[in-house]
């Protein structure tokens, strides 16, 4: 598996990482080598073997539907880089807005 710089830039965009050109080039080589190594899994992963997503079988873990106190909003936003009126404040979502 050999990645192109465009592949790396596409994945970086999906991962929300503003990589530098130097990093893109480094990662292209490193990721190609790592992916070549992990491709071994395909040698033995035949369709008759069911996938394991979780090592201990627990399904639909529910708690009693009882009201209980949760984190107060002012505490929840106390660690935020920017907050306003008990809410997280972020820059505008896109260039096209107002």
């Amino acid at each position: 598996m050999s990645l192109t710089t465009d592949d790396v830039r596409h994945v970086a965009r999906l991962a929300r990482l503003a990589l530098t050109d130097g990093e893109v080039e480094e990662l292209r080589g490193e990721l190609s080598a790592i992916l070549a190594h992990v491709e071994q899994v395909r040698e033995v992963a035949t369709p008759d073997v069911p996938p394991t997503s979780h090592p201990y079988p627990l399904v639909n873990v529910l708690r009693a539907d009882e009201p209980r106190p949760s984190l107060p909003p002012d505490e929840a936003v106390s660690t935020a880089p920017e907050a306003e009126d008990g809410r997280f404040r972020v820059p505008r979502m896109s260039h096209s807005e107002g």
Binding site: V41, R42, V44, A45, T46, V49, P50, P51, T52, S53
Partner: peptide
């Protein structure tokens, strides 16, 4: 595929 290996 990796999850199938996990089963094996």
């Amino acid at each position: 595929s990796a999850q199938r290996v996990r089963t094996l």
